[in-house]
Amino acid sequence: MKRTLSAAALVLLAVVALPTAANALEGDSYGPGSCNSITPASVARGAAVSYSCSDFWVANQTVSITIDSSAAGVSARTLSTVADAAGDIQVSIDTAADPAGTYTLTATQGTVTDSSDFTVLDPADAAAAAASASDPSAGGNALADTGFAGTALPWVAGGLLAVGAAALGTVVVRRRQQA
């Protein structure tokens, strides 16, 4: 009985300790910050989009930014900015001269790269998209996005299933040994 309790305690410790150790790599002090990417993701031609990253780049070093599109007649453009002392950058990109289409922004500093897409719409298309996005009867989504994508749920369920299988296996092995 003591061995079963010991095994169960070890399994419980593993369930609690392993995710904590894995999540430590995601903390602010263990790695780079994050890029908030581009906001808004789609704009009417002539509006600006903002690209920002916090605590991501090497401080006081140049970050090269390339904006490219597969649209006909669009040539790639390159600009650069210098990360501040905290490794943050924020760049505003004017879309006045850009035709409608999807654009890819790629920021590079040494071997570190971040890439994001944004869409430039004709002004009439942008107005129609904004109107339908706020109108539920037009298929738009009137509810706010909470940010939860639900991707952790299968991992938690799988982990609990594995812990249960391990505990059951331990009990079965102990009973066979005692019999």
Rank of each mutant, 00 (worst) to 15 (best):
K2W: 10
T4A: 13
T4H: 14
L5Q: 14
L5M: 13
S6T: 14
S6E: 12
S6Y: 09
L10V: 02
L13C: 07
V15P: 10
V15D: 01
V15H: 09
L18C: 02
T20M: 08
A22T: 09
E26K: 15
G27K: 14
D28G: 12
Y30E: 12
Y30H: 10
G31L: 02
G31C: 00
G33E: 01
N36H: 12
V49M: 08
V49G: 05
V49C: 02
Y51C: 09
F56Y: 14
F56Q: 11
F56I: 08
S69R: 04
S70G: 13
A71D: 12
A72M: 08
T78G: 13
T78V: 15
S80G: 02
T81L: 03
V82W: 03
V82M: 02
A83Q: 04
A85D: 13
G87M: 06
I89M: 10
I89R: 08
V91N: 07
S92N: 13
A96N: 04
P99C: 03
Y103M: 03
Y103E: 02
T104E: 02
T108A: 15
T108M: 12
Q109P: 11
G110C: 03
D117Q: 10
P123S: 03
A124V: 07
A127W: 14
A131N: 13
S137T: 12
S137G: 12
A138T: 01
G139V: 00
A142V: 00
A142P: 09
L143R: 14
D145E: 07
T146K: 15
F148I: 15
T151W: 15
G159M: 00
G159L: 05
L160G: 11
A162E: 00
A166C: 05
A166S: 06
A167K: 01
L168E: 08
T170C: 01
V171L: 07
V173M: 11
R175F: 08
R175N: 09
